[in-house]
Design a binder for these strands. Structure first.
Lengths: 225, 225
DNA sequence: CGGTCCGGTGAGAAGTTATCACCGGTGGGA
DNA sequence: TCCCACCGGTGATAACTTCTCACCGGACCG
Protein backbone atom coordinates (compact mmCIF):
# COMPACT_ATOMS: atom_id res chain seq x y z
CA UNK A 1 0.00 0.00 0.00
CA UNK A 2 3.05 2.23 0.37
CA UNK A 3 3.84 2.43 -3.34
CA UNK A 4 0.37 1.73 -4.57
CA UNK A 5 -0.20 5.31 -5.68
CA UNK A 6 2.82 5.17 -7.95
CA UNK A 7 5.80 7.44 -7.91
CA UNK A 8 5.89 8.59 -11.48
CA UNK A 9 3.00 10.58 -12.96
CA UNK A 10 2.44 7.81 -15.45
CA UNK A 11 1.84 5.24 -12.76
CA UNK A 12 -0.40 7.64 -10.88
CA UNK A 13 -2.46 8.23 -14.00
CA UNK A 14 -2.55 4.53 -14.78
CA UNK A 15 -3.77 3.62 -11.31
CA UNK A 16 -6.35 6.37 -11.42
CA UNK A 17 -7.78 5.15 -14.73
CA UNK A 18 -7.76 1.55 -13.52
CA UNK A 19 -9.65 2.63 -10.42
CA UNK A 20 -12.24 4.50 -12.46
CA UNK A 21 -12.73 1.49 -14.75
CA UNK A 22 -13.35 -0.73 -11.74
CA UNK A 23 -15.70 1.88 -10.29
CA UNK A 24 -17.85 1.87 -13.44
CA UNK A 25 -17.66 -1.92 -13.55
CA UNK A 26 -19.05 -2.15 -10.02
CA UNK A 27 -21.95 0.15 -10.87
CA UNK A 28 -22.70 -1.92 -13.94
CA UNK A 29 -22.51 -5.20 -12.02
CA UNK A 30 -24.77 -3.87 -9.29
CA UNK A 31 -27.49 -3.12 -11.84
CA UNK A 32 -27.03 -5.79 -14.50
CA UNK A 33 -25.13 -8.54 -12.73
CA UNK A 34 -21.77 -9.98 -13.65
CA UNK A 35 -22.73 -11.44 -17.05
CA UNK A 36 -24.07 -8.03 -18.08
CA UNK A 37 -20.73 -6.31 -17.68
CA UNK A 38 -19.67 -4.71 -20.96
CA UNK A 39 -16.21 -3.28 -21.61
CA UNK A 40 -17.55 -1.21 -24.47
CA UNK A 41 -20.17 0.42 -22.27
CA UNK A 42 -17.53 1.30 -19.68
CA UNK A 43 -15.30 2.82 -22.34
CA UNK A 44 -18.17 4.82 -23.76
CA UNK A 45 -19.10 6.07 -20.29
CA UNK A 46 -15.52 7.23 -19.73
CA UNK A 47 -15.39 9.01 -23.05
CA UNK A 48 -12.82 6.77 -24.64
CA UNK A 49 -13.09 4.16 -27.27
CA UNK A 50 -13.22 0.39 -27.14
CA UNK A 51 -9.71 -1.00 -27.34
CA UNK A 52 -8.31 1.61 -24.96
CA UNK A 53 -9.40 -0.51 -21.99
CA UNK A 54 -7.14 -3.32 -23.11
CA UNK A 55 -4.18 -1.14 -22.10
CA UNK A 56 -5.37 -1.54 -18.50
CA UNK A 57 -6.93 -5.01 -18.37
CA UNK A 58 -6.05 -8.01 -20.45
CA UNK A 59 -9.72 -8.65 -21.12
CA UNK A 60 -13.13 -9.08 -19.60
CA UNK A 61 -12.13 -12.10 -17.56
CA UNK A 62 -9.11 -10.29 -16.18
CA UNK A 63 -11.27 -7.37 -15.04
CA UNK A 64 -13.77 -9.69 -13.37
CA UNK A 65 -10.98 -11.60 -11.66
CA UNK A 66 -9.67 -8.31 -10.31
CA UNK A 67 -13.14 -7.38 -9.07
CA UNK A 68 -13.51 -10.73 -7.33
CA UNK A 69 -10.16 -10.23 -5.67
CA UNK A 70 -11.17 -6.76 -4.48
CA UNK A 71 -14.50 -8.05 -3.19
CA UNK A 72 -12.78 -10.86 -1.30
CA UNK A 73 -10.27 -8.39 0.09
CA UNK A 74 -13.11 -6.09 1.17
CA UNK A 75 -14.93 -8.90 2.95
CA UNK A 76 -11.76 -9.92 4.76
CA UNK A 77 -11.20 -6.32 5.82
CA UNK A 78 -14.79 -5.97 7.04
CA UNK A 79 -14.57 -9.16 9.08
CA UNK A 80 -11.17 -8.28 10.48
CA UNK A 81 -12.32 -4.76 11.38
CA UNK A 82 -15.26 -6.22 13.26
CA UNK A 83 -12.98 -8.62 15.09
CA UNK A 84 -10.56 -5.81 15.91
CA UNK A 85 -13.49 -3.87 17.33
CA UNK A 86 -14.00 -6.60 19.87
CA UNK A 87 -16.80 -8.42 18.09
CA UNK A 88 -17.54 -12.01 19.09
CA UNK A 89 -18.97 -14.65 16.76
CA UNK A 90 -22.35 -12.92 16.78
CA UNK A 91 -20.69 -9.63 15.88
CA UNK A 92 -18.90 -11.26 12.98
CA UNK A 93 -22.22 -12.62 11.77
CA UNK A 94 -23.72 -9.14 11.88
CA UNK A 95 -20.74 -7.72 9.99
CA UNK A 96 -21.05 -10.43 7.36
CA UNK A 97 -24.72 -9.72 6.86
CA UNK A 98 -24.17 -5.96 6.63
CA UNK A 99 -21.43 -6.46 4.07
CA UNK A 100 -23.63 -8.75 1.99
CA UNK A 101 -26.70 -6.53 2.09
CA UNK A 102 -24.67 -3.47 1.12
CA UNK A 103 -24.14 -4.92 -2.36
CA UNK A 104 -25.74 -8.28 -3.12
CA UNK A 105 -24.07 -8.70 -6.48
CA UNK A 106 -20.70 -8.20 -4.82
CA UNK A 107 -21.55 -11.02 -2.43
CA UNK A 108 -22.60 -13.24 -5.32
CA UNK A 109 -19.37 -12.43 -7.12
CA UNK A 110 -17.55 -14.11 -4.24
CA UNK A 111 -19.96 -16.86 -3.19
CA UNK A 112 -22.31 -17.17 -6.15
CA UNK A 113 -22.55 -19.50 -9.11
CA UNK A 114 -19.09 -20.33 -10.44
CA UNK A 115 -18.25 -20.30 -14.12
CA UNK A 116 -17.12 -23.85 -14.98
CA UNK A 117 -13.90 -22.84 -16.72
CA UNK A 118 -12.83 -20.28 -14.15
CA UNK A 119 -10.04 -20.91 -11.66
CA UNK A 120 -9.43 -18.44 -8.87
CA UNK A 121 -5.93 -16.98 -8.67
CA UNK A 122 -3.71 -18.18 -5.88
CA UNK A 123 -3.88 -15.14 -3.64
CA UNK A 124 -7.62 -15.34 -3.05
CA UNK A 125 -7.11 -18.66 -1.30
CA UNK A 126 -4.78 -16.75 1.00
CA UNK A 127 -7.52 -14.20 1.67
CA UNK A 128 -9.97 -17.04 2.31
CA UNK A 129 -7.55 -18.50 4.85
CA UNK A 130 -7.33 -15.11 6.51
CA UNK A 131 -11.11 -14.89 6.84
CA UNK A 132 -11.20 -18.41 8.19
CA UNK A 133 -8.47 -17.59 10.70
CA UNK A 134 -10.39 -14.67 12.26
CA UNK A 135 -13.46 -16.90 12.25
CA UNK A 136 -11.55 -19.58 14.11
CA UNK A 137 -10.30 -17.00 16.62
CA UNK A 138 -13.85 -15.99 17.44
CA UNK A 139 -15.08 -19.58 17.46
CA UNK A 140 -12.35 -20.56 19.91
CA UNK A 141 -13.32 -17.78 22.30
CA UNK A 142 -16.98 -18.74 22.53
CA UNK A 143 -15.98 -22.35 22.67
CA UNK A 144 -14.20 -22.78 26.00
CA UNK A 145 -15.85 -26.13 26.69
CA UNK A 146 -13.65 -27.40 23.90
CA UNK A 147 -13.48 -31.00 24.97
CA UNK A 148 -16.90 -31.64 23.51
CA UNK A 149 -19.23 -31.74 26.47
CA UNK A 150 -21.88 -30.37 24.15
CA UNK A 151 -20.70 -32.44 21.22
CA UNK A 152 -21.09 -35.88 22.67
CA UNK A 153 -24.11 -36.57 20.51
CA UNK A 154 -23.41 -38.76 17.49
CA UNK A 155 -23.61 -36.00 14.90
CA UNK A 156 -21.20 -33.48 16.32
CA UNK A 157 -18.96 -36.26 17.50
CA UNK A 158 -18.52 -37.79 14.05
CA UNK A 159 -17.92 -34.40 12.47
CA UNK A 160 -15.42 -33.34 15.10
CA UNK A 161 -13.58 -36.62 14.81
CA UNK A 162 -13.36 -36.17 11.06
CA UNK A 163 -12.22 -32.56 11.41
CA UNK A 164 -9.62 -33.52 14.01
CA UNK A 165 -8.16 -35.89 11.44
CA UNK A 166 -8.51 -33.49 8.50
CA UNK A 167 -7.61 -30.05 9.79
CA UNK A 168 -5.14 -29.09 7.07
CA UNK A 169 -7.32 -26.07 6.15
CA UNK A 170 -6.89 -24.63 9.64
CA UNK A 171 -3.12 -24.62 9.29
CA UNK A 172 -1.44 -24.32 12.66
CA UNK A 173 -4.32 -22.48 14.26
CA UNK A 174 -4.73 -23.43 17.91
CA UNK A 175 -8.40 -24.35 17.68
CA UNK A 176 -9.94 -27.54 18.96
CA UNK A 177 -12.19 -29.79 16.87
CA UNK A 178 -15.29 -28.21 18.40
CA UNK A 179 -14.15 -24.75 17.30
CA UNK A 180 -13.37 -26.07 13.81
CA UNK A 181 -16.84 -27.47 13.49
CA UNK A 182 -18.41 -24.33 14.91
CA UNK A 183 -16.57 -22.09 12.44
CA UNK A 184 -17.53 -24.32 9.55
CA UNK A 185 -21.20 -24.38 10.54
CA UNK A 186 -21.09 -20.63 11.10
CA UNK A 187 -19.93 -20.20 7.54
CA UNK A 188 -22.33 -22.62 5.86
CA UNK A 189 -25.46 -21.79 7.86
CA UNK A 190 -25.16 -18.04 7.56
CA UNK A 191 -24.28 -18.34 3.89
CA UNK A 192 -27.34 -20.50 3.43
CA UNK A 193 -29.71 -17.90 4.84
CA UNK A 194 -27.92 -14.94 3.23
CA UNK A 195 -27.67 -16.53 -0.19
CA UNK A 196 -31.33 -17.50 -0.35
CA UNK A 197 -32.40 -14.11 0.98
CA UNK A 198 -30.27 -12.13 -1.50
CA UNK A 199 -31.43 -14.33 -4.36
CA UNK A 200 -34.99 -13.40 -3.48
CA UNK A 201 -36.17 -16.88 -2.55
CA UNK A 202 -37.83 -15.50 0.60
CA UNK A 203 -39.74 -12.70 -1.09
CA UNK A 204 -43.43 -13.23 -0.86
CA UNK A 205 -43.12 -15.75 1.96
CA UNK A 206 -44.08 -13.17 4.54
CA UNK A 207 -41.52 -13.69 7.27
CA UNK A 208 -38.53 -11.51 8.03
CA UNK A 209 -35.20 -13.03 6.91
CA UNK A 210 -33.40 -11.02 9.59
CA UNK A 211 -35.24 -12.98 12.28
CA UNK A 212 -34.25 -16.28 10.72
CA UNK A 213 -30.67 -15.07 10.37
CA UNK A 214 -30.64 -13.95 13.98
CA UNK A 215 -32.07 -17.27 15.16
CA UNK A 216 -29.43 -19.23 13.27
CA UNK A 217 -26.78 -16.94 14.70
CA UNK A 218 -28.10 -17.43 18.23
CA UNK A 219 -28.23 -21.19 17.89
CA UNK A 220 -24.68 -21.01 16.57
CA UNK A 221 -23.29 -19.03 19.49
CA UNK A 222 -25.39 -20.40 22.36
CA UNK A 223 -24.93 -23.78 23.97
CA UNK A 224 -25.02 -26.92 21.85
CA UNK A 225 -24.61 -26.51 18.08
CA UNK B 1 -49.08 -34.85 -19.13
CA UNK B 2 -51.92 -36.62 -20.96
CA UNK B 3 -51.83 -34.46 -24.09
CA UNK B 4 -48.20 -33.52 -23.88
CA UNK B 5 -47.21 -35.68 -26.82
CA UNK B 6 -49.56 -33.87 -29.16
CA UNK B 7 -52.31 -35.40 -31.25
CA UNK B 8 -51.40 -34.16 -34.67
CA UNK B 9 -48.07 -35.14 -36.28
CA UNK B 10 -47.10 -31.49 -36.38
CA UNK B 11 -47.42 -31.12 -32.64
CA UNK B 12 -45.54 -34.36 -32.08
CA UNK B 13 -42.70 -33.14 -34.28
CA UNK B 14 -42.73 -29.75 -32.60
CA UNK B 15 -42.52 -31.25 -29.11
CA UNK B 16 -39.74 -33.57 -30.22
CA UNK B 17 -37.65 -30.72 -31.61
CA UNK B 18 -38.28 -28.61 -28.51
CA UNK B 19 -37.14 -31.53 -26.37
CA UNK B 20 -33.96 -31.96 -28.40
CA UNK B 21 -33.19 -28.25 -28.15
CA UNK B 22 -33.53 -28.39 -24.38
CA UNK B 23 -31.40 -31.54 -24.30
CA UNK B 24 -28.55 -29.80 -26.11
CA UNK B 25 -29.02 -26.74 -23.93
CA UNK B 26 -28.59 -28.84 -20.80
CA UNK B 27 -25.38 -30.38 -22.12
CA UNK B 28 -24.07 -26.95 -22.96
CA UNK B 29 -25.02 -25.52 -19.56
CA UNK B 30 -23.39 -28.43 -17.77
CA UNK B 31 -20.07 -27.71 -19.44
CA UNK B 32 -20.10 -23.93 -19.91
CA UNK B 33 -22.61 -22.69 -17.37
CA UNK B 34 -25.75 -20.71 -18.00
CA UNK B 35 -24.10 -17.57 -19.42
CA UNK B 36 -22.26 -19.72 -21.95
CA UNK B 37 -25.43 -21.01 -23.55
CA UNK B 38 -25.52 -20.18 -27.25
CA UNK B 39 -28.55 -20.59 -29.49
CA UNK B 40 -26.34 -20.59 -32.55
CA UNK B 41 -24.24 -23.44 -31.26
CA UNK B 42 -27.35 -25.49 -30.51
CA UNK B 43 -28.71 -24.86 -33.99
CA UNK B 44 -25.39 -25.80 -35.57
CA UNK B 45 -25.25 -28.99 -33.51
CA UNK B 46 -28.73 -29.95 -34.68
CA UNK B 47 -27.86 -29.30 -38.29
CA UNK B 48 -30.16 -26.37 -38.75
CA UNK B 49 -29.52 -22.74 -39.08
CA UNK B 50 -29.74 -19.85 -36.63
CA UNK B 51 -33.21 -18.33 -36.84
CA UNK B 52 -34.89 -21.74 -36.98
CA UNK B 53 -34.78 -21.99 -33.20
CA UNK B 54 -36.91 -18.89 -32.89
CA UNK B 55 -39.81 -20.95 -34.20
CA UNK B 56 -39.60 -22.96 -30.96
CA UNK B 57 -38.46 -20.45 -28.35
CA UNK B 58 -39.05 -16.72 -28.28
CA UNK B 59 -35.39 -16.13 -27.46
CA UNK B 60 -32.52 -17.02 -25.22
CA UNK B 61 -34.27 -15.81 -22.08
CA UNK B 62 -37.37 -17.81 -22.92
CA UNK B 63 -35.31 -20.98 -23.30
CA UNK B 64 -33.51 -20.40 -20.01
CA UNK B 65 -36.80 -19.72 -18.25
CA UNK B 66 -38.11 -23.02 -19.57
CA UNK B 67 -34.98 -24.81 -18.36
CA UNK B 68 -35.34 -23.27 -14.91
CA UNK B 69 -38.94 -24.39 -14.80
CA UNK B 70 -37.95 -27.93 -15.79
CA UNK B 71 -35.18 -28.01 -13.20
CA UNK B 72 -37.56 -26.83 -10.48
CA UNK B 73 -40.10 -29.41 -11.58
CA UNK B 74 -37.43 -32.11 -11.50
CA UNK B 75 -36.36 -31.18 -8.00
CA UNK B 76 -39.94 -31.22 -6.80
CA UNK B 77 -40.44 -34.64 -8.37
CA UNK B 78 -37.25 -36.00 -6.79
CA UNK B 79 -38.24 -34.73 -3.37
CA UNK B 80 -41.79 -36.00 -3.71
CA UNK B 81 -40.59 -39.39 -4.93
CA UNK B 82 -38.35 -39.69 -1.90
CA UNK B 83 -41.22 -38.75 0.39
CA UNK B 84 -43.51 -41.22 -1.34
CA UNK B 85 -40.86 -43.88 -0.79
CA UNK B 86 -41.22 -43.38 2.93
CA UNK B 87 -38.25 -41.09 3.45
CA UNK B 88 -38.09 -39.00 6.58
CA UNK B 89 -36.37 -35.62 6.84
CA UNK B 90 -32.95 -37.29 6.62
CA UNK B 91 -34.04 -39.14 3.51
CA UNK B 92 -35.20 -35.90 1.92
CA UNK B 93 -31.82 -34.40 2.68
CA UNK B 94 -30.09 -37.31 0.97
CA UNK B 95 -32.37 -36.98 -2.04
CA UNK B 96 -31.66 -33.27 -2.25
CA UNK B 97 -27.92 -33.84 -2.16
CA UNK B 98 -28.08 -36.57 -4.79
CA UNK B 99 -30.13 -34.35 -7.07
CA UNK B 100 -27.69 -31.48 -6.65
CA UNK B 101 -24.55 -33.54 -7.20
CA UNK B 102 -26.01 -35.15 -10.31
CA UNK B 103 -25.81 -31.81 -12.14
CA UNK B 104 -24.37 -28.86 -10.22
CA UNK B 105 -25.19 -26.30 -12.88
CA UNK B 106 -28.81 -27.42 -12.78
CA UNK B 107 -28.83 -26.78 -9.04
CA UNK B 108 -27.28 -23.35 -9.58
CA UNK B 109 -29.87 -22.59 -12.21
CA UNK B 110 -32.50 -22.89 -9.48
CA UNK B 111 -30.68 -21.62 -6.40
CA UNK B 112 -27.69 -19.73 -7.81
CA UNK B 113 -26.93 -16.10 -8.53
CA UNK B 114 -30.03 -14.34 -9.85
CA UNK B 115 -29.93 -12.03 -12.85
CA UNK B 116 -31.12 -8.61 -11.59
CA UNK B 117 -33.69 -8.05 -14.32
CA UNK B 118 -35.14 -11.55 -14.26
CA UNK B 119 -38.50 -12.36 -12.71
CA UNK B 120 -39.56 -15.96 -12.33
CA UNK B 121 -42.87 -16.90 -13.94
CA UNK B 122 -45.80 -17.49 -11.65
CA UNK B 123 -45.94 -21.27 -11.81
CA UNK B 124 -42.48 -21.79 -10.33
CA UNK B 125 -43.71 -20.23 -7.09
CA UNK B 126 -46.34 -22.95 -7.12
CA UNK B 127 -43.64 -25.59 -7.51
CA UNK B 128 -41.68 -24.00 -4.69
CA UNK B 129 -44.77 -24.21 -2.49
CA UNK B 130 -45.10 -27.88 -3.38
CA UNK B 131 -41.52 -28.57 -2.34
CA UNK B 132 -42.07 -26.66 0.87
CA UNK B 133 -45.25 -28.62 1.53
CA UNK B 134 -43.54 -32.03 1.38
CA UNK B 135 -40.77 -30.56 3.50
CA UNK B 136 -43.31 -29.46 6.08
CA UNK B 137 -44.91 -32.91 6.04
CA UNK B 138 -41.61 -34.53 6.91
CA UNK B 139 -40.75 -31.84 9.45
CA UNK B 140 -44.07 -32.38 11.19
CA UNK B 141 -43.48 -36.11 11.51
CA UNK B 142 -40.08 -35.82 13.17
CA UNK B 143 -41.39 -32.99 15.27
CA UNK B 144 -43.93 -34.57 17.62
CA UNK B 145 -42.75 -32.48 20.57
CA UNK B 146 -44.36 -29.61 18.75
CA UNK B 147 -45.09 -27.46 21.75
CA UNK B 148 -41.50 -26.33 21.91
CA UNK B 149 -39.97 -28.33 24.73
CA UNK B 150 -36.74 -28.18 22.76
CA UNK B 151 -37.35 -24.65 21.65
CA UNK B 152 -37.59 -22.93 24.98
CA UNK B 153 -34.24 -21.24 24.52
CA UNK B 154 -34.41 -17.63 23.40
CA UNK B 155 -33.30 -18.19 19.84
CA UNK B 156 -35.74 -20.83 18.71
CA UNK B 157 -38.47 -19.21 20.77
CA UNK B 158 -38.15 -15.85 19.04
CA UNK B 159 -38.05 -17.46 15.61
CA UNK B 160 -41.02 -19.71 16.28
CA UNK B 161 -43.01 -16.80 17.66
CA UNK B 162 -42.25 -14.81 14.54
CA UNK B 163 -43.12 -17.72 12.29
CA UNK B 164 -46.34 -18.35 14.16
CA UNK B 165 -47.33 -14.79 13.35
CA UNK B 166 -46.04 -14.88 9.75
CA UNK B 167 -46.93 -18.25 8.36
CA UNK B 168 -48.56 -17.12 5.13
CA UNK B 169 -45.97 -19.08 3.11
CA UNK B 170 -47.12 -22.34 4.71
CA UNK B 171 -50.68 -21.79 3.52
CA UNK B 172 -53.11 -23.96 5.44
CA UNK B 173 -50.56 -26.65 6.17
CA UNK B 174 -51.18 -28.22 9.60
CA UNK B 175 -47.65 -27.68 10.92
CA UNK B 176 -46.76 -26.11 14.22
CA UNK B 177 -44.29 -23.27 14.61
CA UNK B 178 -41.52 -25.72 15.55
CA UNK B 179 -42.04 -27.65 12.29
CA UNK B 180 -42.06 -24.40 10.33
CA UNK B 181 -38.73 -23.40 11.81
CA UNK B 182 -37.30 -26.87 11.31
CA UNK B 183 -38.28 -26.93 7.63
CA UNK B 184 -36.81 -23.49 7.12
CA UNK B 185 -33.53 -24.38 8.80
CA UNK B 186 -33.45 -27.63 6.86
CA UNK B 187 -33.64 -25.65 3.66
CA UNK B 188 -31.13 -22.93 4.50
CA UNK B 189 -28.53 -25.09 6.24
CA UNK B 190 -28.41 -27.81 3.62
CA UNK B 191 -28.38 -25.23 0.87
CA UNK B 192 -25.49 -23.52 2.61
CA UNK B 193 -23.34 -26.64 2.65
CA UNK B 194 -24.40 -27.78 -0.83
CA UNK B 195 -23.93 -24.41 -2.46
CA UNK B 196 -20.45 -23.87 -1.07
CA UNK B 197 -19.45 -27.43 -1.93
CA UNK B 198 -20.71 -27.26 -5.51
CA UNK B 199 -19.07 -23.87 -5.99
CA UNK B 200 -15.77 -25.44 -5.04
CA UNK B 201 -15.18 -23.42 -1.89
CA UNK B 202 -14.23 -26.59 0.02
CA UNK B 203 -11.73 -27.89 -2.50
CA UNK B 204 -8.25 -27.95 -1.07
CA UNK B 205 -9.48 -27.70 2.49
CA UNK B 206 -8.97 -31.39 3.05
CA UNK B 207 -12.17 -32.46 4.78
CA UNK B 208 -15.05 -34.36 3.25
CA UNK B 209 -18.12 -32.20 2.52
CA UNK B 210 -20.33 -35.26 2.83
CA UNK B 211 -19.40 -35.58 6.50
CA UNK B 212 -20.26 -31.93 7.14
CA UNK B 213 -23.53 -32.37 5.25
CA UNK B 214 -24.35 -35.47 7.25
CA UNK B 215 -23.57 -33.73 10.51
CA UNK B 216 -25.82 -30.80 9.68
CA UNK B 217 -28.52 -33.23 8.68
CA UNK B 218 -28.17 -35.15 11.94
CA UNK B 219 -28.29 -32.02 14.05
CA UNK B 220 -31.37 -31.04 12.07
CA UNK B 221 -33.26 -34.25 12.69
CA UNK B 222 -32.05 -35.12 16.19
CA UNK B 223 -33.15 -33.45 19.39
CA UNK B 224 -32.75 -29.71 19.84
CA UNK B 225 -32.35 -27.61 16.67
C1' DC C 1 17.18 17.88 -26.63
C1' DG C 2 16.33 13.37 -28.50
C1' DG C 3 14.57 8.74 -28.25
C1' DT C 4 11.56 5.55 -26.33
C1' DC C 5 7.71 3.99 -24.36
C1' DC C 6 2.86 4.42 -23.58
C1' DG C 7 -1.91 5.62 -24.26
C1' DG C 8 -5.36 6.27 -27.69
C1' DT C 9 -7.67 5.53 -32.21
C1' DG C 10 -9.74 3.37 -36.32
C1' DA C 11 -10.33 -0.64 -38.87
C1' DG C 12 -11.51 -5.23 -38.85
C1' DA C 13 -12.27 -10.31 -37.64
C1' DA C 14 -15.19 -13.57 -35.41
C1' DG C 15 -18.64 -14.19 -32.54
C1' DT C 16 -23.50 -13.42 -30.45
C1' DT C 17 -28.94 -12.45 -30.39
C1' DA C 18 -32.72 -11.28 -32.95
C1' DT C 19 -35.76 -9.74 -37.02
C1' DC C 20 -36.96 -9.62 -41.67
C1' DA C 21 -38.80 -11.35 -46.22
C1' DC C 22 -39.17 -15.31 -48.84
C1' DC C 23 -40.02 -20.29 -50.19
C1' DG C 24 -41.49 -25.01 -50.16
C1' DG C 25 -43.67 -29.01 -48.28
C1' DT C 26 -47.06 -30.87 -45.30
C1' DG C 27 -51.63 -31.27 -43.49
C1' DG C 28 -56.51 -30.32 -43.00
C1' DG C 29 -60.91 -28.77 -44.71
C1' DA C 30 -64.14 -28.38 -48.66
C1' DT D 1 -59.50 -35.23 -54.73
C1' DC D 2 -58.06 -30.71 -54.80
C1' DC D 3 -56.52 -26.55 -52.92
C1' DC D 4 -55.18 -23.32 -49.80
C1' DA D 5 -53.28 -22.05 -45.51
C1' DC D 6 -50.13 -22.66 -42.28
C1' DC D 7 -45.76 -23.93 -40.54
C1' DG D 8 -40.85 -24.80 -40.55
C1' DG D 9 -36.55 -23.55 -42.61
C1' DT D 10 -33.22 -20.36 -44.97
C1' DG D 11 -30.39 -16.26 -46.24
C1' DA D 12 -29.63 -11.58 -45.52
C1' DT D 13 -29.19 -7.93 -42.29
C1' DA D 14 -28.84 -5.08 -38.19
C1' DA D 15 -26.84 -4.14 -33.85
C1' DC D 16 -24.45 -5.77 -30.52
C1' DT D 17 -20.20 -7.98 -28.10
C1' DT D 18 -14.91 -9.13 -27.20
C1' DC D 19 -10.52 -8.78 -28.89
C1' DT D 20 -6.33 -8.00 -32.30
C1' DC D 21 -3.86 -5.30 -35.33
C1' DA D 22 -1.23 -1.30 -37.34
C1' DC D 23 -0.56 3.35 -36.70
C1' DC D 24 0.14 7.93 -34.51
C1' DG D 25 1.16 11.53 -31.32
C1' DG D 26 2.55 13.28 -26.98
C1' DA D 27 4.60 12.81 -22.60
C1' DC D 28 8.30 11.34 -19.92
C1' DC D 29 13.16 9.91 -18.91
C1' DG D 30 17.94 10.02 -19.57
Amino acid sequence: MADKDGRTPRERYRNQVRAEIKERAWEQIATSGAPGLSLNAIAKQMGLSGPALYRYFAGRDDLITELIRDAYRGLADAVRAAAAGGADLAGLGAALRAWALADPQRYFLVYGTPVPGYHAPDDVTGIAREIMATLLDAARLTDDDADGTGGTDGAGGALEAHLAAHRAWAGDHPAGPAALGRALSFWTRLHGVLSLELAGHFTGMGFDPAVLYGAELDRLTHAVP
